[in-house]
Structures are given as C-alpha cells and as structure tokens.
C-alpha cells in the first residue's frame, strides 16, 4: 500500500500532512509506505525519516491543472500510488476535478465534490446556514468599496472583513474597513465578505463525512494557546452535545465527503453557537482527535479505499495537545536532490 500525502509544511502555520501521516501510522493496521508531495523544497515533513519514505516536488495547481496532473501521473508511473491524501485548501478544487482521472490511474482520493466546495465557500456559507437553520453571522458580499458606504442595519461596526480564500480582519470603523478591503482585494481578488462580528469564545470541531450524509467521527476542542498568527499551539478536547449535533447536521446537509474543520463562536450574551467557517480538509490539530480515540485520518484512508466503516461513538474529553518545534539536521546533499531532481529519499 502506498499513500501520498500533501501539506508537509510543518512550520509556524502548519499544514495537516504530518499529523495525518502520524494518525495513519499510529493505527497499527497500516502496512506500506508514505510518499510526500511537496510544493516547496524545505517542507519539514519531507526530511523526517519516521514520517515519509520519499518525497517529490509538485507544481502548484494554480500554475495549471494539466501540468499538475502530468506531474502526478509521472510520479505514479514508477511509484504506483494507491491513495493520494490532499490536505490543503488551495489544492482541493484541483483534486476534486481530477478525482476521476486519478481513479483511472488507479489512484483513490477522498475529496469533497465541486458542488460541496462551492456551497461551503465563504461567499455562500451564510445562505447555506440560513437554509439549514444553522446560526451564522450576517454578511454581505461586497464587490466594490461603494458597498461599504451603505452597510445594512444588521452590520454595525466592528465588522469582519474577509478575503474570498484566506485572511480575516476586524474593522472598527469605515476607514479601517476600506483599508482592509483594498488590501484583500489586491491579494485574493473580489468579492470581499463583510461579516457581522460576534463576540464570544471560539470552538472548533474536526470531522469526517462518508459522502452519504453520515459523520464517521467528530471531535470538539477549545484552543488553549494561540500564536500571534492565530494558530492554536495547544488545545483540549471538550464535549458539548449541541456543538456535535450542529456538526452532524452540516455533514448531513452537504453529504460531506472527506475531512473538515468547523469553526464556531459561542455568542457571549446568548450562549448560541454561530458557524464561522467550514474548512474543507482536516486541520493541523487533527492528531488530537487520534489521541482522544478517533483516528480520523486512518478512517479517511479506509473510506478512500472504499471500505465500509462504523462511526465512532465517543472520545476522551480533557485530552490536550501541545505543539512544539524540533530542529532537524540534514546535509546540503538532501536539499540539492530535492531542488535539482525533485525527489528526496529517506529510505
């Protein structure tokens, strides 16, 4: 069995690749090799012997889906990959589009459909929530700075200004809002989402959908330490029936296929949960779910292979993850190999 995993950028804003691989290996049932797929020669997971056997550089899907596919097909021609496990937002559209062609090469994937990806998009999420009776902060889709002049009454400052793919800032007045608007429009393009700011504590759920409406697993957590980049550096599993039932409802409504992370805020004055975002892949803290008893990465691998699996029933509350950094020492030769030949071998 050969599984290729992306997102080995275990840096200060880490990709989920390394924790996903650890989950698969921790299952004790996995026999085979893990191959890394890299967008950058210095992604740490490629240099970690206990994580990847070999890694290959691949082009960004944004540079062209054909050459992206060609490179994967080339690597597959001698590696014979069974499953590709994509873990990053920006590549999911490409993998979703290519899932049929990859299947023809004998490569299985577990990725959301294009329709699911569009529906959970930041610009569509509010509509989706309204239709399915899920609380979500009110928003408007702004296509020009003029839209900021006439905000509807539901939007009082402070508001959240969000890019269509990444980034979000809280703006306290019109001046700040228009500055963020311009900044994000130039970086990620239009439209920009202007969202109601809801004050309260944030909670996250990592979940896995089987594509037929069933949540195979879902684990809720609260971040305990947040870096200046807004990433959780420590977190704890919690149990709240309501949080989990909303998560199941989302998976059912979308027939979600694959891993996901739901971000919620619990409104300070009413205690209601508001859905802020659906990330269409596992978060980097997915290993906490493994540690708490739900090996969601391995379950996702089983789903990708077409195996029938039973949903997880529960998990341990009060398990904590604490992230740390660790310096690897490698020879220049390794960097040369990946730079020049596009392959790095740990075997």
């Amino acid at each position: 069995m050969k599984v290729a995993v992306t997102g080995l950028n275990n840096v200060d804003s880490p990709g989920p690749g390394v924790p996903v691989i650890r989950g698969i290996k921790d299952s004790g049932k996995f026999e085979g090799e893990i191959i890394g797929l890299l967008y950058d020669a210095l992604e740490p997971g490629a240099y970690m012997r206990e994580v990847t056997s070999r890694s290959y550089l691949i082009p960004y899907p944004s540079s062209g889906i054909e050459s992206f596919f060609d490179r994967l097909a080339y690597i597959n021609s001698f590696e014979k990959i069974d499953v590709i496990f994509p873990t990053l937002d920006a590549e999911l559209f490409a993998f979703s589009k290519l899932s049929g062609k990859l299947n023809d090469l004998g490569i299985k994937t577990l990725v959301p459909t294009m329709e699911q990806l569009v529906l959970r998009g930041k610009d569509k999420l509010f509509d989706f929530c309204t239709k399915n009776n899920i609380n979500a902060p009110y928003n408007i889709i702004a296509s020009s700075i003029n839209d900021l002049y006439a905000l509807p009454k539901e939007l009082q400052y402070p508001v959240v200004i969000k890019g269509i793919f990444y980034d979000a800032y809280v703006a306290h007045n019109f001046q700040e809002a228009s500055a963020y608007f311009t900044k994000m429009a130039s970086k990620w393009g239009l439209p920009i989402i202007v969202q109601e700011f809801i004050s309260g504590e944030e909670y996250n759920v990592v979940a896995l959908g089987d594509g037929e409406g069933t949540a195979i697993g879902a684990v809720a957590s609260k971040k305990m330490y947040i870096t200046d980049k807004g990433k959780g550096w420590a977190g704890v599993t919690i149990m709240d029936e309501e949080l989990l039932s909303i998560s199941q409802k989302i998976i059912k409504a979308l027939n979600w296929r694959g891993g996901a992370e739901f971000e919620f805020v619990k409104k300070r004055d009413t205690g209601e949960y508001f859905l802020l975002e659906i990330n269409p892949r596992f978060p980097a803290w997915v290993y906490l779910a493994v540690g708490a008893g739900q090996n969601l990465p391995y379950a996702a691998l089983q789903l990708a292979l077409g195996e029938k699996i039973e949903p997880f029933e529960n998990y341990e509350v009060g398990k904590i993850f604490i992230r740390y950094s660790w310096d690897l020492i490698v020879d220049m030769k390794k960097f040369e190999d990946i730079t020049v030949n596009g392959v790095l071998r740990n075997d």
Binding site: N9, D40, A41, L42, Y60, S62, S63
Partner: peptide, 17 residues
C-alpha cells in the same frame, strides 16, 4: 537563485505540455 518561501503563490517546478 533558490529561495524558499513557504507556500508562495508560484510553483517551484513546472512541467509543460
């Protein structure tokens, strides 16, 4: 020159058809 920007927008390798 090799410069490594984690997750920069442009690809480091490219294959062409």
């Amino acid at each position: 020159k090799q410069h490594s920007g984690m997750m920069n927008k442009f690809g480091s390798t490219q294959t062409f058809r």
